[in-house]
Design a binder for these strands. Structure first.
Length: 104
DNA sequence: TTCATGACGGGGA
DNA sequence: ATCCCCGCCATGA
């Protein structure tokens, strides 16, 4: 049986290059409408084990929510290299780049 | 079993 | 716009 964690991991792995998803959106799709916090934990514990494209996961405001400056800039650089344009220091046009995994 | 963690979300000041 | 606070809830020790 797939755990919530495995579902989240699966969803993140299906985010295409040049697209992003928010923590809340992922949690919702994985079965927990209020599971944004869990997604955060999963990124911590699973990005190491599964090598997830964590850089394609941002907060609901379309910003890089990470606090570590170095990592945040790295994430920004990776997103830019995928064609995503930043409208601010760490902000993007969320509606333009949000990934909608309707197709399974 | 309980308890702490957590890179969030949303609403209010 | 920024800052703060509270709610959410799966996971691991």
């Amino acid at each position: 049986m797939e755990s919530f964690t495995e579902r989240v991991i699966h969803i993140i792995q299906r985010i295409p290059s040049g697209k992003v998803m928010t923590y809340g959106q992922i949690g919702q799709l994985a079965g927990s409408p209020r599971g944004a916090r869990q997604v955060v934990r999963i990124l911590h514990s699973s990005s190491k084990k599964h090598g997830l494209p964590w850089h394609r996961v941002i907060n609901a405001k379309g910003e890089i929510g990470i606090k570590a400056e170095g990592a945040a800039e790295h994430q920004k650089a990776m997103l830019e290299s995928e064609g995503i344009m930043f409208t601010g220091r760490n902000t993007i046009d969320l509606e333009a780049y949000r990934h909608h995994p309707e197709i399974f």
